[in-house]
Every structure is written in structure tokens, then in C-alpha cells.
Nucleic acid binder design. Structure first.
Lengths: 144, 144
DNA sequence: ATTTTTGCAAATCATTTGCATATAT
DNA sequence: ATATATGCAAATGATTTGCAAAAAT
């Protein structure tokens, strides 16, 4: 459960209207704990009897990803999941038990990336790093 | 275009039969350059008029992933792609132009991962790192 | 014989698109 | 007015599944 503000700010900053459907989607995302699937939002909207079309949800989500306020994760299973996050380059640690994530900066990673570029001769443009494991909370309460 | 042997060896090692459909799939994979989508294999099979069902291709691919002989990549676009690779823990550098990949070991990454574990308190179980950029060949021949 | 695989077609799931309508500036 | 955004329903695309037939041990 995070804050909606960053999401709304992202829309605003990029000159997109904060319409009532978008506000609703932002709220659904903010109300989520851990990562979620697009389908979860659709289900949430339906549960809350919000009059938002499926397509609108997908479009708002896509927009937020484009704006960097939401990031797509690829779980070890191959499924796609999303998490709202700060719009800066960073990576996530994903709890394999509860799905919550923490952002980590890539300070220490930079050296590794540079080294790979040097060794392979690739002109690296981007990279994605995702770490999976059990978060402190799940470890201490013995959650699956 | 790589070698089929590692793929067949993976089936064998795990006690799975190397049937003619599986051999055909392994050959299709080995004949590929760079990453491929499951749909590519289906198309290749059809092109070569191989009598292999779609489901069989998906099942063989899934099995190879399970055995670690093929890895699933998640391209920056969110699409899934596959590459055959050595069955050991490692990561890939993916050419954003031609799709070929190179494997890299995670020696230098380990320290970073440990540091993240220490700082976040997560009991890290796995991680995925994918690097994207233009490979030496594409850089020198000016390919898109 | 028994177990493992296969092929097919149908089912599922996630996501996207066309397009006419509604909203915001 | 003009540009944006929405909803719906249909279209796509990618897997997945049930199940009876075929192949391997």
C-alpha cells in the first residue's frame, strides 16, 4: 500500500489528464501491496464496482510504465507483474513469499556492467536486474 | 546456430526420451541464431513440413527450460524470448540489433548481490540479470 | 504390459484494437 | 471547437489442457 501522489504526478508531469478513470486506477495500484498483475486491477475494479473498462485499465497501466512510475517485473515463473516505483533507474528485490518489493540503486552494479561491456565489446544500452528472496518480515513470521 | 548435443544431453541426463519430435525441436533450436520465440519454432517446423504438433513444441521447450538447457529472456519490450545455453548459473548479454546472446558469468556480481542481501535483510534465492546493447558485429557493420 | 509422449482441437488468459461516444481544455 | 480519453465488444496471440491414440521400454 503506497502513495497515489507519485502516480498522479507522473500523469501530470507528462501532460496527461488526471481523469476520473485514471485516478481510480492510480488508487487501485496504490492500494496494492507487493506486485500485482493487470488482471488483479481489473478484478479490484470490478470488486469495487468501479465503472472502468478493462481497456482503460490496461491503457493507464501502460502509460504509467512509459512514464516510469510503474515497472514491469518478470517473475521467475515467467509471469509478468507490476509494481509502482520511483521514476529513476533502479532495480527491485522481490519477496518470493509476499510479493512486496524494495527498490535498490545500482551504484555497485555499474562497475560490473562496465566490466561486461569491456569484456564483451557490446555497447550496452540498458539492463534489468531482479533479485528474488524472502523479505525480513516473511522470514521472521515463517510465512510460506 | 549452436549445437544440438547439449540439448539432447539435457534430455538424456534427466531420463527423458529423445524421441523424434524432441530431436526435431532440438534441431530447430540449434539452427536458430540469437533468441527466438516459441512461435518461431512453430513456424520453422511448419516451413520444414515437420509433423510436430504445436503442443509438442511447447512441451519440449518447457522441458528444456526446466532442465536449464534453454533460458527464457524477457526483452525490454516485455516479450518472452528463448536462447539455448549452458546449464549453469549465468546471465546473458543480448544484442538489441541481431538478437544474438553471449553468456557471462556472475563472478563480479556476487559481491553486489551479497551487499544487497546485507542491506535489505532479504534471504536472496535467485536473481536475473539481462544486459541489452549492440554486439561488436552489429556495431561495426552498422546494422540497425 | 506399462509408462511416457504425441497430436489435435478446444479452452484459457492476457492484452490489444477499432470505433463511436463522452470529456476536458 | 479540438484534442484526449473511454468503453465495449471483438480480435489477437500465446500458451495450456483434456484425452485418446501411438511409441518406447
Amino acid at each position: 500500500m503506497s502513495n497515489v501522489m507519485p502516480l498522479l504526478a507522473a500523469f501530470e508531469r507528462a501532460g496527461h489528464r488526471i481523469t476520473s478513470p485514471r485516478l481510480a486506477v492510480a488508487n487501485l495500484i496504490a492500494a496494492r501491496d507487493g506486485h500485482f498483475a493487470a488482471a488483479d486491477l481489473v478484478a479490484d475494479a470490478r470488486r469495487d464496482r468501479l465503472a472502468i473498462g478493462r481497456a482503460t485499465i490496461f491503457r493507464a497501466l501502460e502509460l504509467l510504465i512509459e512514464l516510469g512510475a510503474v515497472e514491469r517485473l518478470d517473475l521467475p515463473t515467467g509471469e509478468h507483474a507490476y509494481v509502482s516505483c520511483e521514476p529513476a533507474h533502479h532495480h527491485h528485490v522481490v519477496c518470493s513469499s509476499c510479493g512486496r518489493t524494495s527498490e535498490i540503486d545500482d551504484a555497485g552494479l555499474r562497475a560490473f556492467v562496465d566490466e561486461v561491456a569491456r569484456r564483451t565489446g557490446y555497447a550496452l544500452e540498458s539492463h534489468r536486474l531482479e533479485l528474488f528472496g524472502r523479505c525480513p518480515a516473511c522470514r521472521s513470521n515463517g510465512a510460506a
